[in-house]
Write a protein that binds this DNA or RNA. Sequence first.
DNA 1: TTGAAAGCGCTAACAC
DNA 2: GTGTTAGCGCTTTCAA
Lengths: 348, 348
Amino acid sequence: MAITIKEIAQKAGVSRGTVDRALNGRGGVSPEVERRILDIANLYGYKPNKLAKALATKANPSKIGLISIENIFFDQVIEGVIRAEEEISDFGVTVCRRMIRGYDAKSQLEAINSMVYQEKVDALAISPVSDRQVIARLAELAAEGFPIVNVNMDVPFSKKLAYVGCDYFKSGRTAAGLMGLITGERAQVGIISGCGNVMGHTQRVEGFMSVVKNEYPDIQVVDIADSYDDEQRSYDAVEAMLRQHPQIDALCFTTGGAGGGLKAAEALRGKRLRIVAFDQTPITERYLMDGLIKAIVCQQPNEQGYQAIRLLFEYLMEGERPASQQVLTELTIKIKQSMESESRGGAR
Amino acid sequence: MAITIKEIAQKAGVSRGTVDRALNGRGGVSPEVERRILDIANLYGYKPNKLAKALATKANPSKIGLISIENIFFDQVIEGVIRAEEEISDFGVTVCRRMIRGYDAKSQLEAINSMVYQEKVDALAISPVSDRQVIARLAELAAEGFPIVNVNMDVPFSKKLAYVGCDYFKSGRTAAGLMGLITGERAQVGIISGCGNVMGHTQRVEGFMSVVKNEYPDIQVVDIADSYDDEQRSYDAVEAMLRQHPQIDALCFTTGGAGGGLKAAEALRGKRLRIVAFDQTPITERYLMDGLIKAIVCQQPNEQGYQAIRLLFEYLMEGERPASQQVLTELTIKIKQSMESESRGGAR
DNA sequence: TTGAAAGCGCTAACAC
DNA sequence: GTGTTAGCGCTTTCAA
């Protein structure tokens, strides 16, 4: 059993109230006494009891804000957030969610301010776009000590609590590795990229190229097109690419939202193309089961949402910053058979 | 805010103690008063506060027993167990762990009894071998209402709380799917199976065969050998197999512990063989990075350990049985690039 | 600057 | 049968 405030108070020869003040930096404790208390707490590895704390602070419970993007991929992030919500609701901590349509900086700025000033949240989880003003605002808040976690999308500012998401560069490398495996390391590849102002998509392409360049002399990346995460534009991009480069026999889609592009690929070439894609969405899932896509490199959006909220919760409850500012979720690869849902059952 | 015991007591004109007795069916309450209390509780939708409950019962805390196998794979299960332990320690619940060398029924029986009678645990998580006596003992305990969760390995008895582990049949199917992808659906395959009395390994082989049979007319499974999860025997098995069937150009190892077999494969044929294996262990990891193994089908041992303990914890705290008796962890595929640890970093 | 004490919601031991 | 009371570990208010 861990040491309690009461025990520390005894050992230090002071009252519980004083220990509480010292431990939580509420001020009003003489430096000398504070030192003594902190030393004892440290020595015995004091960890506050979350339960007791939650019970005691039930009067003014904490609130976490979440600002995310409105689309099928982020729905999975939200699922994880909700899972975390259920776990922490017992502690009186609530989550206020806000979904934003598209990757719009203005709306994000508005949402941030609304969260802070209207909803008066105590912490923020956000999937920020790479926008100068958004970054500046987040940096400012973080500098004031406001806890912020970036989920799934990352932007640079030093005082953030953490980034929870995947390693996009590595996911690009993984896609290239898969491409090597399924093509016998010989292919003419076309890449269909996602949205320009989403940093992750760019990094995926870079990761992909790094492997092709260094490890697969017989794989050429013939063309790279941008789909702008739009149905029609991705259809057109793929159609144009395949017409212009008839030698292309493999495709890599760096975004899970390019249903149009996949449709074009199927229409023009059918299953002769070897296709690798990213992210499990209803679209990629369908084409994987269908056999058009051979493999998908997935992040774990559900886990990301869950971890982001948990991290903020731990911070609010115990004041503990995560061990690393980069909390990377594992990459997982899916193929048809690993996606199938039916089980033959095991022991009863 | 939900209604509390105190408030119910006021409304019913009785003491908190009486309400507690009535609500928890501890007896010693007159039927008439009990009715009144229950009605009020119902009317106002009383829900007990978990935190307060846990705090109050901290005096006689619960204890969960864990019986697992002593090897590198199960170390990962233990990691997850420890993660869960940390989370539930606030609730005063502890975990008593016991690792057993090998798949020995006798030792498992002893451990079970020791846990129940000496350690007096309130619940048990176990990775049971497929042994008649072990199953009988577990079934007996479960029938008495003792909560039992099977972790990673499953055996049949009806009253278990749950099995937490992967779908072995499906993992076999996934390995076959991978084999199809990396061989262009044309190969002569040898299978090196694991331990006979581990049900999962058998199911993996069956899953593998089911895909080959139905989907890959040009893949033949030439031979199946047993490695008994032993270094030397697996070396010998592979050596014999490759000598006897020179046409074999692909291998599937259904166990992550067969380092000897992999060594033999490398010695005799080098990287010309296309190899698929199961489970991330230091051995499979090394050979994957090395290029001998092309892909690994992983379960999530860490998650399995975590979930098993969480499930028992929830049951002990709230009396809630899991929604399904089969809690299946997702399969993940690893290739060289997705295993690499270095990141090029993203936003700071 | 420090201490004392009253709760948060629940359980359990003991008294009536 | 039922009421009373003392905690569980922490926060917070009010005195000193």
